[in-house]
């Protein structure tokens, strides 16, 4: 009994290697046939798809371990099923009647908030099933549902009444910018030239943009992504140490400074001595607040919670910090 005879035909004793060979053959066959049959995922199959797939699996299983089965006959059965399935599907795309016969058709379950009990029964669904699906689709109130349809693939699609649908940018008359498909330009420091070209950008542009955000070495870039608007997002390899610094605090300092200057200007402009006094007083208070805040607003706390707060540079700053925030810079800490 030769090796290949053992592999392909019904035999009394099956050697280990022949058994493994059968496994390899059936596996390859299944992969090929399922590829040809289409690439729908399991959750997205029609009942018909599912039945054919399971049948193919069943046929393929036995000869892989059973010495009394031959491989040839199941293989022929599988190929036949595969070809038939492809032909039925192809026929479905051409003739709608055939498609409805084989693949089933959508069943309307709710129309204008009214449950169509007859169709529910025809789809063999209970009201509980329907309510469960509605809850999952975030439309638990029947009156909020305009249409609910049982699709041929077994899912239920729910269309809510416009009153309970969230407003879109179009509804609000807001400008809508095209998002397009964002492209990844750099991965692990390597420029993705294909994506760069597809996005209509050049390496020179990319390098210039990176330099502008303080990156000179591509190795510092973990990921760089560009959106359709040309905005570049960069994730650095060392981001655990240097998270993006918030601009809120420097902005606040600038705003306070500007207000103080304005107040001083008002004080100069006004002719009324009382008003001048009021403006001066307000400006003084703002300046004072600004001075107190200086150590906090300047030393942007990019390391807050990660590293100890840096020492204030001058003795003056230290004294101020001690005055307004006692215990912050005890000797030996920091």
């Amino acid at each position: 009994m030769t090796f290949w005879q053992q592999v392909f035909f019904s035999v009394d004793i099956l050697s280990l290697t022949a058994l493994m060979m059968r496994g390899i053959i059936m596996y390859t066959l299944i992969v090929l046939v399922t590829r040809v049959m289409g690439q729908r995922e399991v959750g997205n199959m029609t009942t018909f798809d599912a039945v054919v797939t399971i049948t193919v699996g069943n046929i393929a299983a036995a000869p892989m371990f059973n010495n009394e089965d031959s491989v040839i006959r199941p293989a022929i059965a599988i190929v036949t099923l595969g070809v038939l399935h492809v032909m039925t599907s192809a026929a479905g795309t051409r003739w709608p009647h055939w498609r409805r016969l084989v693949g089933g058709q959508p069943v309307v379950l709710i129309k204008d908030g009214k449950v169509l009990e007859e169709n529910l029964r025809a789809a063999r669904l209970t009201l509980d099933d329907l309510m469960q699906e509605l809850r999952l689709k975030e439309a638990p109130r029947l009156s909020d549902v305009e249409v609910a349809v049982m699709e041929p693939r077994g899912r239920i699609s729910v269309i809510k009444r416009p009153q309970v649908q969230p407003a879109t940018r179009g509804d609000l008359g807001l400008p809508a910018q095209r998002t397009g498909l964002p492209a990844i330009l750099v991965v692990d420091g390597k420029i993705q030239h294909k994506n760069l070209k597809q996005a209509g950008l050049t390496e020179g542009w990319l390098r210039a943009r990176l330099r502008r955000s303080g990156i000179t070495d591509l190795k510092q870039v973990a990921v760089a992504q560009v959106d359709a608007g040309g905005a570049l997002y960069v994730d650095r390899t060392d981001d655990a140490l240097a998270p993006p610094v918030s601009r809120a605090k420097p902005a606040l300092a600038a705003r306070l400074k500007k207000t103080a200057a304005q107040l001083e200007r008002f004080a100069l402009d006004t002719a009324d001595p009382e008003a001048r006094q009021q403006y001066r007083e307000a400006a003084r208070r703002v300046r004072e607040a600004l001075e107190r805040l200086a150590p906090l607003l300047r030393a942007s706390d990019r390391f807050a919670g990660v590293l100890p707060t840096p020492e204030p540079e001058s003795d003056e700053a230290k004294r101020r910090l001690e005055r307004w925030a006692p215990g912050r810079n005890k000797p030996g800490e920091g």
Partner: peptide
């Protein structure tokens, strides 16, 4: 989360409020 900074911010908020009052009057 820094208690000292929390205090300082709160105090400065009060300070700015002190500047708001005369300005409102004005």
């Amino acid at each position: 989360n820094d208690q000292a900074a929390k205090q300082l911010y709160a105090q400065c908020a009060q300070q700015v409020k002190g500047a708001i009052e005369p300005l409102k009057q004005r």
